[in-house]
Amino acid sequence: MASTDMTVADVSVRGIVPPSVTLAEPARPRLLVLGTSLAIAAIAMGYIGLLGHYIAERAAVVQSGSRWLPEGVNIPLTQPNFQGLTLAFSIVTIWWAVSSIKHNDRFYTLVAYALSVVFAVAFIAQTAFLLEIMGADLVAEGVDGERTVLIYAIIGTHLVMMVAAIVYAVAMAFRTLAGEYSSRDYEGVLASAIFWTATVVLYGVMWYVVYITK
């Protein structure tokens, strides 16, 4: 029913609304999706702010003819690429969870959630390994240390977001297990998938800005 065509009688207000009143679309129920989307926008702004720092400071150093990465620091490409691949797999599984719950298939929803979390934990382990082999020293003196702090801040913030995505997914998995979500209402599953996807997209941005351009 088109919202603008709704009449007073449609909502059973029993004649107490004047005829001039046309009703708008009723309040949208997907508040969790809405709130999650706003939260993602806010987080993205903060993250882009950090990346803005990185781009500006790197540009200034490169323009002066110096090397941006601190002395002795090396960012290999293999690990970041595999991290990206792992997250790409997790995108498939997290949306598999949404698809499953749409079909009232709770078992495969939980399987999809479990696989997503496994991929995410693998991603965190890969990030820890990458930080280890990068050889960056947070307490190095001078500009080297400052640049390392910036790189760690960007990678660390994304890790925190990944952990938040895991917590969100696990919470929604428990809700699904408790029978709260079904094909009629799968708002929480959808919201967690959106948050997960945003985390992966931000990794893509970071992958290019930090790992590729170095």
Binding site: L38, A41, A42, M45, G46, I48, T157
Partner: peptide, 14 residues
């Protein structure tokens, strides 16, 4: 506020 304060938080993190 939602779009600008997180940038401030990023500054504070740094």
């Amino acid at each position: 506020g939602l779009f600008s304060l997180p940038i401030l938080m990023a500054e504070l993190l740094l």
